[in-house]
């Protein structure tokens, strides 16, 4: 009973760490082409949910389907194909410390084994340009880079194969306001060029307001609100009230001037 409309489908998902229950019966559908933002307090299981969508953790109960199929039980080739259609930006970048910036971005392209080095070189330089990293940094090792640069290079690596589905875990955490604004613009332009579905966990209200098509609020083991930003802000759950209608929330929402 696969729903054709969903690029990611989460059905009856339960997560437990020992006796600690993180999620209880979560149902979620990510539609193609949308930006879905997961919000929730610390420990509400945003990252855990995202890791389950990526197949890094198995849910205690329930199922996650990506492109209509579960992320396990396939033959190697099929699984690789599904993996290649997803890009992930980890919270701390997760650049391979043994490889230079250039090789980090080139790695997924080389793994395809269909592209020649010339094409890979042009593509890597293009991705670096896209995230605004100067070519002189290409030969540096990740240890020599600042936090903001690591993040941007990690985004370039996540986008290396031009995935249809992009997971962003706290993409703007640790970036200065100017950089996170640039990051938001970057995502917006990428969306005009490609049909890109994005699942993002964030605390940053500015990013949320600028990018989200829909927002899912995780609290008390459930998704307490799901819908457009306007709909979510309208719900009466105390976490939502705190998160969006606190001082910070008012400021961020006020900037757009359309929601409240």
């Amino acid at each position: 009973m696969t729903n054709e409309e969903c690029i990611i489908e989460v059905e009856g998902l339960h997560t437990r760490f020992g006796s600690h229950v993180v999620h209880e019966d979560i149902n979620l559908c990510v539609r193609p082409g949308e930006v879905l933002v997961l919000v929730g307090g610390s420990g509400s299981g945003k990252t855990a949910l995202m890791r389950q969508m990526l197949g890094l953790e198995m849910p205690a109960q329930g199922e996650v389907r990506i492109f209509g199929e579960p992320l396990y039980g396939h033959d190697r080739k099929k699984l690789q194909y599904m993996r290649n259609r997803c890009g992930v930006l980890f919270q701390k970048g997760a650049l391979f410390s043994a490889l230079s910036v250039y090789d980090n971005i080139a790695l997924p392209m080389r793994e395809l084994r269909t592209l020649d080095e010339g094409l890979i070189r042009d593509l890597v330089m293009l991705k670096l340009k896209m995230v605004d990293i100067e070519p002189k940094h290409a030969s540096k090792m990740p240890a020599e880079l600042s936090g903001g640069m690591v993040k941007r290079i990690a985004l370039a690596r996540a986008m290396a194969l031009d995935p249809e589905l992009l997971f962003l875990d706290e993409p703007t955490a640790g970036l200065d306001p100017e950089l996170s604004e640039g990051f938001v613009k970057l995502i917006q332009t990428m969306r005009t060029e490609l049909t890109l579905t994005i699942v993002m966990a964030t605390h940053d209200l500015d990013t949320l307001v600028a990018l989200s098509d829909r927002v899912a609020v995780l609290a008390e083991q459930h998704i307490v609100a799901l819908g457009s930003l306007r709909e979510v802000v309208g719900t009466s759950h105390p976490f939502v009230a705190n998160f969006f209608r606190g001082e910070r929330g008012k400021k961020a929402l006020g900037n757009t001037g359309d929601v409240l």
Partner: peptide, 19 residues
């Protein structure tokens, strides 16, 4: 028109530094 930007970017893309 939406693909125009891709090729514009290509023009600006720097070449890889020589080893």
């Amino acid at each position: 028109p939406e693909h125009e930007r891709l090729f514009d970017r290509m023009k600006e893309a720097p070449s890889a530094p020589a080893p």
